[in-house]
């Protein structure tokens, strides 16, 4: 009788403990294997999109001409995805990424594409929304960037404020005619924006390869952006990014808004941003996941 009672108690505790164990182990295992699966996809992804941001007053169609030129002059046409971020943070998406395309173009434009530092800060936040959507959906671990005019400033703000270097790494960023010091022609007067950029420069990833392209119609500017302002980028990136190269383009079509389709710049993009055929310039760094 006493023995039976004892058995009953053991049985009760045995069942209780087993239930608790299963209630932890099963969901833990499901959750964990999903997590491992995701990180495996990200880790092994060879996807290396080029994400482009147009300047102020330009739409998501700003780079159409550039991409056409790039696609006709390379062996392989790359697909194009366009995103417009609305003021509410909603995403409007057109186009799509072809399945086997390892280096698609993604253009991120903004419904509110006005000029000015406060807009740039807002646009950087919107870009972050789009970027998170993209990295969630396509699970890339690396990308390259091109920013025209204020697009380069949006990129800089994004890198300093939002970007998480551990989730994905940025290989190359090319800014084209980006006025790091606003419309200032004198580098000793720093705009609030440049001062903020310089203050947070330590957050720029140290493995970033940066090309800053300046157009010059005459000796001082590209018709809109002062050369001195583009040149001020050195205060942000030099000795922080892995490399900082400034390239000055002159001659035909070096006016500010012509820059994205300027032949020399197209050549530079092909050389520095695009993977050459299938061999990778910036192979996935094994140390990163």
């Amino acid at each position: 009788m006493k023995n039976k009672r004892k058995m009953g108690r053991y049985l009760f505790w045995g069942i209780l403990i087993l239930t608790c164990l299963l209630a932890v182990i099963i969901p833990a295992n499901t959750w964990n294997s999903q997590k491992v699966k995701n990180s495996r996809i990200i880790h092994n992804s060879k996807l290396n999109p080029v994400i482009l941001i147009p300047g102020s007053s330009a739409t998501q169609n700003r780079f159409d001409e550039l991409i056409d030129v790039l696609n006709t002059s390379t062996n392989r046409a790359h697909s194009l995805l366009k995103i417009t971020v609305k003021k509410t943070g909603e995403l409007k998406i057109t186009g799509k990424i072809a399945k086997r395309d390892m280096q698609p173009f993604i253009v991120v434009g903004f419904e509110d594409n006005s000029n000015g530092y406060s807009s740039i800060k807002k646009q950087a936040k919107w870009f972050n929304t789009a970027f998170n959507y993209l990295s969630d959906k396509y699970k890339f671990n690396q990308f390259s960037g091109i920013g025209h005019s204020n697009g380069g400033l949006i990129y800089t703000t994004f890198l300093e404020k939002y970007f998480d270097n551990k989730a994905a790494s940025i290989n190359t960023l090319m800014t084209i005619g980006s006025p790091y010091n606003g419309e200032e022609t004198n580098q000793s007067t720093r705009t609030q924006m440049l001062a903020d950029f310089v203050a947070d420069r330590k957050k720029i990833p140290t493995d970033l390869v940066l090309y800053s392209i300046a157009g010059t119609e005459n000796y001082t500017n590209d018709g809109i952006v002062p050369y001195q302002s583009v040149n001020a980028g050195k205060y942000i990136f030099q000795n922080q990014a892995k490399s900082y190269t400034e390239i000055t383009v002159t001659g035909n079509e070096s006016e500010h808004s012509d820059l994205p389709q300027n032949k020399q710049i197209v050549a530079l993009i092909k050389q520095y941003v695009m993977d050459s055929n299938d061999s990778k310039k910036n192979g996935p760094d094994d140390k990163k996941q």
């Binding site: 495996r40 880790h43 092994n44 094994d286 140390k287 996941q289």
Partner: peptide, 12 residues
């Protein structure tokens, strides 16, 4: 830790 993780993600 890092290289073990990287290896396992690659080889499954």
């Amino acid at each position: 830790i890092v290289s073990n993780l990287s290896y396992s993600l690659k080889h499954g």
